[in-house]
Amino acid sequence: MARFHYPLQKVVDLKGSEKSMAEWEFAASLSVLRKEEERMETLQQERRALVRQLEETTQRPTALNRLTELHLYFEIIDQRIREQHEGVRIASEQVTRRQSQLKDKMVDEKVWLNAKDRAYERFRTEWLNKEQSELDEIAIVRSAAVSRG
């Protein structure tokens, strides 16, 4: 069988490379989101520990400045949690964007692969038809030779 050469193979290869890059970017954005979520969990654990500490502190006589320190610390932790919520939101939006880009690249690559497959099938069909024609011609020549001789 003759060798199939797809003239747009470089485009197919480019689409595959673009999809691979989109997969890498999507994975990287997921990693960033996980880290942001881990930071959020750490802050929330820190806040829960502070609540326990405040509960323990209020059950015994405590200096006003200590309560003020705890209150200030609460405000700082709550502010950091609000900021971290924003970080998680931004990372989540980035994941959504990268996922959408990956989907688009996958569809684009699939379109080009399907075009290549259709071109191969046309090539194969033409080659098989040509081969059959050659076999038919050989059979006709043999048949004519047998009937003459």
Rank of each mutant, 00 (worst) to 15 (best):
S20V: 01
S31E: 14
L54Q: 14
V12L: 11
R66V: 15
Q9M: 13
E55W: 04
Q79H: 11
A63S: 07
F26H: 13
V141K: 11
E75Y: 04
E37D: 07
K19I: 00
L33Q: 13
W127M: 13
S147H: 03
L102W: 08
D136N: 09
G149P: 00
E131D: 12
A27C: 10
S147Y: 00
S100W: 03
Q132A: 13
R118A: 15
D117Q: 11
Q101M: 13
L43Y: 00
E137H: 05
G16V: 00
T125S: 06
R47M: 12
A91G: 08
P61V: 11
G149Y: 00
D108E: 14
Q44D: 01
R124I: 00
V107Q: 00
L135N: 12
S17G: 12
Y73V: 00
E93P: 03
V51N: 03
E37F: 01
D117L: 09
V88T: 03
A119T: 05
K15G: 01
Q45H: 08
W24S: 13
V141S: 07
R39Y: 04
R60P: 09
L30Y: 09
D117R: 07
Q9S: 09
E55Y: 07
L102H: 12
F74R: 07
E56R: 08
V51W: 01
Q101L: 14
R148I: 01
A91E: 06
V32D: 14
S29N: 10
S17R: 11
T58V: 14
A63Q: 04
E86W: 03
W112N: 12
G87F: 04
A115Y: 06
L8N: 14
Q99I: 05
Q84N: 03
K10R: 11
R148K: 05
L54S: 12
L43C: 01
E109N: 10
E126C: 05
T62M: 09
L135G: 02
